[in-house]
């Protein structure tokens, strides 16, 4: 057992090391991309439309934009090396601080959405696979198709219309918590967790109510790939020789389906869930906008629109890092779930 754990850690370490060149590539690439994009930040951040040439020139100097691109790159890299992601012109705060404040909001939303998606998708996929071609199977397929073809901002708006406007069940779609609730001491940054840790059930419920609609509209979008992969791999699993063996000795239906078929079928779902998670984290900008969710994606979009280099670069770096980390976690989970992986 110890050797298994050691092997897993060693494998994870190797993975982490081998991803460093890719991270560096992402860093340089986004830096260059930002320089190529049209728009002059100095003009944008000058005091007003009639700011003089001198003022703009001064801002440019202040931002280091008067130097050549390679020089800027070197400065940028050495800053990153010291953990300094630069300062956002928009908020006037260090990018690191902005991201640190906003990342938990995005993570909380994405985790919740993924959890909802998995809880819905896996049973749906299993049910569909148990009776392929049946009415249930077709129902699941239709549901998945709808989930994919309705964009998240449309489903988000629909949810708001129904649950907030018509039924009045949901609170205002204005961020993570309404302004009158006092915030708990920050520990994890996840409001629902922090409220629980503070023992404030009422606050927890308020945070959850804010969370549920945006999470649901994001989940609807990713149920389809998860349910489809569950169904496909469940079909393979149910048709496999070892399930036939399990049936041949008369194991109960639950044991055959859950212990034998599903546990094997879940392996590819883990991989897909990792990919889905990374995609959601970056792509949920629409949901963040619709629900005024103070997440990193909407922050990056705003920065991009105002040619604010540092936050965009910081965001891309953050996403790349998270992607590497998520893959690592998937890898480790896979190694634990499938004893064949740790060998060789």
């Amino acid at each position: 057992m110890m050797t298994g754990l050691g092997a897993t850690v060693a494998r994870a370490g190797r993975r982490l090391l081998s991803s460093l060149p890719a991270l560096f590539g992402v860093l340089v690439f986004t830096f260059l991309l930002m320089r190529v994009l049209p728009g002059d930040p100095a003009v944008f951040f000058a005091s007003g439309p009639n700011a003089g040439k001198e003022e703009i020139e001064q801002i440019r100097k202040q931002m280091g934009l008067d130097k050549s691109v390679p020089e800027q790159l070197v400065f940028y890299l050495s800053d990153i090396g010291r953990g300094n992601l630069g300062r956002s012109m928009m908020t006037g705060q260090p990018v690191l601080k902005d991201l640190r404040e906003r990342l938990p909001a995005s993570l909380e939303l994405t985790f919740t959405a993924l959890l909802i998606a998995l809880l819905a998708a896996v049973p749906l996929g299993v049910v569909a696979a148990l009776k392929p071609g049946s009415l249930v199977d077709h129902g699941v397929r239709l549901f998945c198709a709808l989930g994919v073809c309705v964009p998240t901002f449309v489903s988000g708006l629909l949810l708001i219309y129904v649950f907030y406007y018509l039924l009045g069940l949901a609170p205002d779609p204005t961020g993570r918590i309404d302004v009158f609730t006092s915030l708990p001491p920050q520990r994890t940054g996840f409001l629902s967790v922090d409220f629980l840790l503070a023992g404030d059930i009422e606050g927890w419920w308020a945070a959850c109510k804010q969370l549920i609609l945006p999470a649901l509209s994001m989940a609807l979008f990713v149920i389809a790939p998860l349910a489809r992969i569950t169904r496909a791999s469940m079909l393979v699993s149910l048709g496999s020789d070892f399930v036939r063996t399990a049936r041949s000795v008369g194991l109960s239906w639950q044991k055959v389906v859950v212990t034998y078929a599903l546990r094997n079928a879940i392996l590819p779902v883990i991989t897909i869930a990792g990919i889905v998670f990374s995609t959601m984290l970056g792509a949920n900008v629409l949901v963040e906008k619709v629900f005024s969710w103070p997440g990193v994606a909407s922050y990056a979009l705003d920065a991009l629109l105002s040619s604010d280099y540092a936050p965009v670069q910081g965001f891309v770096l953050l996403m790349a890092g998270i992607f590497v980390l998520v893959n690592l976690v998937v890898d480790v989970c896979y190694g634990i779930a499938d004893p064949r992986v740790s060998i060789g």
Binding site: T245, A246, Y260, N264, P339
Partner: peptide, 8 residues
């Protein structure tokens, strides 16, 4: 080999 559950 295929007749046995690979992860049990």
């Amino acid at each position: 080999r295929a007749a046995l559950n690979p992860i049990r």
